[in-house]
Nucleic acid binder design. Structure first.
Lengths: 238, 238, 238, 238
DNA sequence: GATGAATGAGGATTCATTCAT
DNA sequence: GATGAATGAATCCTCATTCAT
């Protein structure tokens, strides 16, 4: 569901902190913009790792500062609070994910092509940014509902539109069954994407995946993806 | 994926604490068995609510004790640690869920009947025990990986076997396409179940569901389930 | 300084709890007298062990009750407080020690005989009742000075009198130098006794003893005692 | 046994905190080095007093912080744990003591001169640092055996060597009896030193000393020391 | 702007003691 | 008399946040 399309840089050449740019909503202070790129990147990378590893509550600003080799005072000159740091990360993660999704949406010939590309993207994204995925999973938890800024407000999904549109187009093209419930089918497909992505990031879901598929199948993940595509194709095909 | 078998009591007539019985694994102390039923139930209900609401780390034993109107000392006479209290809940939730899953597995005529029953069960379970579902989602988070040693023992899923078997039977009966990849298809189906269940329990996923389906569809949830069934039927049918 | 004279029973045939009888000062409640001998003994033995092992503060009444297989309620029906239990033990330990000292005092022919007997008694007492000796050492610590009943009030030593008298007698008999300062010499002798006793009970002082004497000498402890006797004899002899 | 070498400052003009310098082993955090001299001194002095007064277990970090007028957080920025604070004190006390012992060892003409100097040093040290002596006594208690692993490393006594060597030299010089058992005699002498030192620091042993000597003798302590020297001289002399 | 010492409320846990059964 | 559940103050320690340098 959240994908990542290969860019000109090869995977592994940079870490998360690279691509984090702030958009309309800002949860950081001006000073953060003014500090060096390296410092910004370090802070964000460390924060992502720790938040992903231990969750929001169990991660301390002091630990982040120490790991990033930055003073606590500096942290508080960049972010007004722990919450704001968390939001900064979540926010930029969203932008990164959304960007990838748009890329895929734009380049997909039809719903089946889209499905195939999304599966690859989910896998790559999960493997390239495992921490980010853990963070995302953690974020969807009710536990963060007490946050001053509601995270659920931030769900501005593009998949419903994209997948819905592609299914409609598929109907017109005769490759998707005419009675397909666009919204529900789009949901089902995205559900499969999300769980696939989680299965490659979270320890718990990875173990679940192993139980389902067995170690042998996991070694040939592209074969699994083909089978998933077959599943989806069967569900949609006219 | 996690089901709920209807009982004679209607939904909402009791809370989680009711049904918690301990099995082979015990994470509570003897004293907990000896205290009054009312107290046991209160403690568990309060703990489930708070853990679900704020997550493991952000929930304090003191909060639970206060809300349950018992002393901190009493809490520690029941459970050796905060972790043990958490495990007690998770454990009994698992038993409850597993029981329901077995009931459905036993009573399903074929994979389509199973799918239909599971969708209903997921919905009922999600709506009847929303907190329990939030807890479960939280538990799958990486953040709790420090407990994963004890937790991962609990991933003894029955769905892979059941669904796999039903798909194989379907092939023999000619109602499932012969080339269906049993394992992957079982996984896809369960992914749809899990996300459906989360969508009805977690605030985040509920909002996502609303974006996908719109308010109008949500009001007629059984219609949605029919559409999901259609999706699955299409994927599997010969 | 605190000795133990062999009785008709052989060493090891009983534990401390046996010999504890209460004297003039009582720190226990009547109920303790009324319970069974076995119970009394168990409670005291367990308490001695735990207090000796961990010290007063770090030993909990709950632990003692558990180890003695007695309810906390019972403990508090026997002793009004933790402090009282401690005093009961200390008190009876004193009686035991004092009794032994009187035996030796009565049976000593002269100061040298007394010294030889005391060295043996110190060793036996230390090895037979190591926990009791640890308790005694702990008790001499300032740490217990906040106790409601001052422990130092309980020092009713007999050694000063006994040793002083024997030294005076030795002078008259011509076996002790006439210019011997009775009090100071008695003190010096008892200092040697005390340290010898501690050296065989406390881990710290045992290690110190090993450093002084080496492992070879420790294996022949009676030889060491002979040397100590030689030291004292030289100090006193006319 | 534990000595104190007179400095230019008179006794009582400063407290323990003054002289604490850290050597090879450090049990405190860097922040402790960085805080003000005054604060360091206050913390250590308060900690020594409270640990000596109530023992390790019965002294709380909170008490120390309160008495030192600093926050609990500050305490934990200086020391990682209560244990480390305790070790810091014990460690520096050891350094102080050891230094004094070396001074005396170097400056002693023979075993009798050494004995005389040690008695004075024990008295001065006991009176100048009574709390430190109480702490030391407490430390030798079995109750602290859980720390003994780290503590026992510190028993690197110099007295056995020094006294043994002086006794041997005395034999050669003809001032010590040729049959003197060097190790045992060194032990006996040090036992007398230790008890003398405790007798002037611990309430319990002070009371014992009073019983032995009477109030009149205590007022002329140097006379008592002369008598002890006579005792030792008698024991050793050829 | 950066630093990191300092603060103190809060969290997990223990334990002396009480009291209903 | 015995039991052990219940209490809650006290303990060790953490951490978000502030502020003087």
């Amino acid at each position: 569901m959240i994908g990542y399309e290969a860019t000109t840089k090869g995977a592994g050449e940079y870490t998360m902190g690279d691509r984090i740019e702030c958009g309309a909503e800002r949860f950081h202070k001006d000073a953060f913009d003014r500090t060096t790129e390296k410092r910004r990147k370090t802070v964000l990378d460390v924060a992502i790792n720790l938040f992903a590893e231990h969750g929001y509550s169990a991660t301390s600003i002091n630990d982040i500062a120490r790991d990033a080799h930055i003073s606590i005072g500096a942290m508080y000159s960049y972010f007004a609070s722990k919450e704001d740091l968390y939001f900064t990360i979540v926010n930029s993660a969203y932008r990164l994910m959304t960007g990838v999704l748009y890329d895929i949406a734009d380049s997909s010939a039809d719903i089946f092509d889209y499905t195939a590309k999304m599966l690859v993207a989910c896998r790559r994204f999960a493997l390239e940014y495992p921490k980010l995925n853990q963070l995302y999973l953690d974020m969807t938890t009710q536990a963060l509902s007490s946050m001053s800024v509601r995270l659920s407000d931030k769900i501005e999904m593009i998949t419903p539109d994209v997948a819905g549109k592609l299914i409609r187009a598929g109907k017109r093209a005769g490759i998707v069954r005419p009675d397909a419930d666009e919204r529900v089918f789009a949901l089902c497909i995205d559900n499969i994407f999300m769980m696939y992505q989680f299965s490659l990031s979270s320890e718990y879901y990875r173990e679940r995946l192993r139980i389902y598929l067995g170690d042998d199948r996991l070694e040939n993940i592209e074969d699994v993806e083909r089978a998933i595509l077959t599943f989806v194709r069967g569900a949609l095909s006219a």
